[in-house]
Design a protein around this nucleic acid. Structure first.
Lengths: 227, 227
DNA sequence: CGATGTTGGAACGTACAACAATGTGGGCAA
DNA sequence: TTGCCCACATTGTTGTACGTTCCAACATCG
């Protein structure tokens, strides 16, 4: 058949039960309703949600794509526990991507996106809502990553961001990061201005320092909690 | 318990049937035994491999993490077809990642790894085995990506490399890329030397040109095949 | 008393079978 | 050509059953 003109493609609903269950569990984990270490018992979930155990198994398998859960043979899955190593890994990836991103040339559109994200962040900072600030902070950094001009990399970064927000939430570290640090906004402004003035080496250095500083603070906090 | 001395850790089997099936299907796809567009019929696979349909479903779900198959509700899964868009997306990600990588400072260890990968590539080029050359080529680029110093990014890149080898194999384009291009090795040497001499801007430019050129060639080939 | 053998239960891994939901194609009439 | 109806194929989902693995508690023995 010849395709019909003037008809934009639409995506029909088509969401399987397993995907629904997966999304539900994901939400529970990200909200903190399911705390790290909680086992995901297939039977319990099945009877609670009124679906079959097989469907729950499929949902958990789908969830396994993210790193929000950990699975062991014959033991099932549990909500992932924020390890220091995992968190460092996450920040290593962030630092690599973001430093790499600001080392690349950025056109007007991408720079404008970063500027816009910075404005959002400043507005959120005035508001004082922690979750909002975290979201806008991550959005700012995601905007810088768009310099790669790759949907795949953006998707990868988004995945990291999800994990990150889960980790920070689980550690209840988000408040510490944003409320107590007066230089928080300045660091972001500095990064943006370096990008806008095409000072790529400077931008790279600022991003590196910004993330290193964040890692240092988190590491200290983790040592305090664990040790 | 006190851990026992002189006993090195071993990883016990712990591989589910579904994972076996997934790996089997993955191999078939990468080998080209299952051609793009081939539907993965659950019943057929189940009876052929002597496992239950549910296990096959789990295997296909696991496979869905990669982009080697495409799934549609009530239609099942088919072996992914190499779209021009998908290939461009893949190369966009590669270019972004690799240009970003060589824009970062590389220490002696990483530089040595790149040098070693280059030597492997040169040896493979002498041998003339196409598959070997493709593998060593990808290994070289993976070595540059290690500049990010992030396991996560390396894993992401490895995933891209798997898809890429599938695409190139499906398009039977690998020969064209490596056999007919005399400058192939020189381009890699140039990249390595720029990295070794810490000329990051030069390395970034060379990588960019190398990948742009590859994209241009692939695009031309695709146009010839499709049009 | 400590190390080892035994046992029962909980949860998962896998298989089989059945039904529901959905999409496909054929045939037929207006 | 269009609309309608109907069998057919395949996936989506459920239910059930059974074996396997692991754990914890208890029993046993030197």
């Amino acid at each position: 058949m010849t395709p019909m003109k003037g008809l934009t493609k639409m995506s029909v609903q088509r969401v399987s039960t397993a995907e629904h269950v997966r999304d539900h569990i994901t939400t529970l984990i990200l909200n903190g309703d399911l705390k790290p270490g909680t086992p995901l018992r297939e039977n319990a979930i099945a009877t609670t949600l009124g679906v079959s155990r097989n469907t729950v198994r499929e949902a958990v398998l789908l969830l396994g794509q993210s790193r929000l859960i950990r699975h062991e043979m014959h033991h099932g899955s549990i909500v992932a526990e924020p390890t220091k190593d995992a968190l460092i890994n996450l920040y290593d990836a962030r630092r690599g991507l973001e430093v790499g991103a600001v080392s690349l040339p950025a056109d007007a559109e991408i720079t404008a996106g970063i500027k816009s994200a910075l404005d959002d962040l400043e507005r959120a900072a005035e508001g004082g809502d922690d979750r909002e600030i975290v979201a806008k902070d991550l959005a700012f950094h995601a905007a810088t990553v768009r310099s790669f001009r790759s949907e795949r990399i953006d998707a990868f970064y988004a995945q990291l961001a999800v994990e990150l927000s889960f980790f920070l939430n689980a550690l209840a570290a988000s408040r510490l990061d944003y409320a107590e640090d007066e230089t928080f906004l300045d660091e972001h402004r500095r990064i943006y201005e370096a990008i806008a003035s095409e000072d790529r080496a400077g931008a790279a250095r600022f991003v590196q320092e910004h993330i290193d500083e964040t890692i240092r603070r988190l590491r200290a906090r983790l040592d305090a909690v664990e040790g």
